[in-house]
Design a protein around this nucleic acid. Structure first.
Lengths: 191, 191
DNA sequence: GTCTATAATTCGATAGAC
DNA sequence: GTCTATCGAATTATAGAC
């Protein structure tokens, strides 16, 4: 196994354990045991426990930001933007379900300096979503709703998708989920 | 201060800290410090750290179950049932925001036996929601959507409400949130 | 009820031999 | 890169004096 493969294997195992048990409840000894080696070896792959979390959070945050920046540049209607954002979340949650979960559950375990930086990024992301709703309500693309509550509710409604992918899913299952989820959120429940 | 008041104060402080830092990251010393006493005194109010979490989870789970059982007995349309469930979640999240959060974030730190019991209760609750969607789709009250994905999305979309209440809110703010949230979820976003 | 003291364990991380 | 051994700190929880 190459060095790169070993590192990838370590990251995968560490992320899975942190997802299953939570960051605080996952010990370096847990990770070592699942790697089949001793605790000391873990520090060949990471300089500290926190850096595992830190790298995952900021890497994945950057991917979300790239995605939303790209679709905000396109000339899409507010409704089309929401559809693209659903697709973005499903895609990222499919490709890295554990790390998508950390953005929701584990960010608070960052140390203070990193925490502030992360919250800044998150707030910026939420602002983009808010702007879409605010614009869409003004332009009558959306109904008369509270833009703040709508944007929070929208983000919350797609915050479970990663759970569907943690045990492995096929590309077909990904597409199906995306279609049904979009149908629910964009079309609404009631006829 | 009476014995009951001291216990209530302990519970409130413990729940606030667990909400803010997470169960694993909250130490008995943290709680003691916020109570203004020594660690040993904490064990006058609880027999263990886990029993704090355990009692909160099962108490609040029972309240959710009581609420949904009551509204399922009524002869309401599926749509009216969803509206009542939104109201139920807003009400409980308003009255005990920390404990509502534990049902989402902290249940996994229960010990094995208690964990299985909790998951059983949660699954039953989710089944009731699923049944509402399943029935509503058949009866044409709802659009043609995937009932499984719809029920998960619905529950996820109201899973943020407690955050709005953790720093204290007026009854008027509660009503406003309930109205706007119901408008978003039942009416949908798009016109 | 309050405290001091401490037991028993576990944690992240490092030193150093191979 | 692997291991053994261990450090220093922090954890839950208890014993026992006041």
């Amino acid at each position: 196994m190459s060095v790169a493969d070993r590192r990838a294997n370590f990251t995968k195992i560490a992320h899975r354990l942190i997802y299953e048990k939570g960051y605080k409840a996952t010990t370096m000894r847990d990770i070592a045991q699942n790697m089949g080696c001793d605790v000391a070896n873990i520090y060949n792959y990471t300089k500290s426990k926190e850096s595992i979390l830190e790298q995952s959070l900021f890497d994945t945050s950057a991917i979300f930001h790239e995605g939303i920046k790209k679709l905000m540049r396109n000339e899409l209607t507010p409704k089309e933007k929401l559809i693209e954002i659903i697709k973005l979340h499903v895609t990222i949650s499919y490709e890295r379900p554990y790390q998508a979960a950390f953005l929701i559950d584990e960010w608070r375990h960052l140390s203070n300096e990193k925490l502030n930086l992360f919250l800044k990024e998150r707030h910026q992301y939420e602002s983009w979503i808010f702007d879409i709703f605010n614009t869409g309500i003004m332009s009558n693309d959306f109904r008369i709703i509270d833009p703040k509550i709508a944007s929070i509710t929208f983000l919350s409604s797609i915050r479970w998708v990663h759970n569907q992918f943690v045990n492995g899913s096929s590309p077909k299952q990904r597409i199906e989920l995306e279609v049904h989820l979009t149908n629910c959120i964009i079309g609404g429940y009631c006829s």
